[in-house]
Design a protein around this nucleic acid. Structure first.
Lengths: 126, 126
DNA sequence: AAGTATATACGAAGACTTTCGTAAGTGCAA
DNA sequence: TTGCACTTACGAAAGTCTTCGTATATACTT
């Protein structure tokens, strides 16, 4: 496997890096602490491990190193979704979509978007 | 947490129990081995742990114990889906649905089902 | 009855994840 | 220049997950 699957804690960090772009440990740790308490060296260690694993890239020019997600949000979530669908829905993405639609309330706007997407798929795809 | 989140290996076992109903270790292990190699005592140990955790129930009347999933497939997958959406899509199930629809090819029949489901939601809900 | 097959129980190893304490280096300010 | 704030590096503990070897019990077969 080229880039391994991120763990839960690593995914939290990736979300910050995707949302705010390349950042130092201090910034990421502050963002994480808006949701739950995490020690600074814990975040530091995780981000160092992520560089080892190839999940993140870091620039060490400055004293405070700048970390960046190695893979795009799009491609990573695609992979995570695939693996989740395989593990929990026997590989049937549509079964999962049906369950998600049924269980979560969607706004009219969202439903419209989904309908538009379906129409596009019907027109282009097959 | 009443019943904990099943691990990957535990989920594989639950899938067998949901699909085929209450079963002995031997049967579950055979089914798992159709997909990947697993030792018998490995499966046994996991299923014993699942009883400890409350994920499974077992009947020890017979020499070969019969194991049964403690929670329904429906409720378990609902929880797993919720947690996955929280972890990977910031809680937005619709974002995940859009991504799943975009990335997986769906049959016309599936698309029709989804459209019907959306119409039902639009009619009932809101 | 003896031997074989099959079952459970249990301990423990090895890998991985998350957490944090401590050491050591770097820059800035009084 | 002395000290404080902040940074990285690193080791290690504690927890969890997965795997399997071994011991022991139970049934069947010849």
């Amino acid at each position: 496997m080229e880039i391994p699957k991120p763990t839960e804690a690593e995914l939290e960090i990736l979300q910050v890096l995707w949302q705010y772009g390349p950042s130092p440990v201090r910034f990421v740790n502050d963002k994480l602490n808006e949701q739950r308490e995490v020690g600074y060296t814990t975040t530091l260690k995780l981000m160092q491990i992520m560089v080892d694993k190839g999940l993140a890239i870091r620039n060490t020019d400055q004293r405070s190193h700048i970390y960046e997600a190695a893979a795009s949000e799009e491609s990573t979530k695609t992979r995570l979704l695939d693996q989740f669908v395989d593990a929990a829905f026997n590989g049937s993405a549509m079964k999962m979509v049906m369950q998600a639609l049924g269980q979560h309330q969607a706004s009219q706007k969202e439903l419209d978007e989904i309908k538009a997407l379906i129409e596009r798929i019907e027109r282009d795809g097959q």
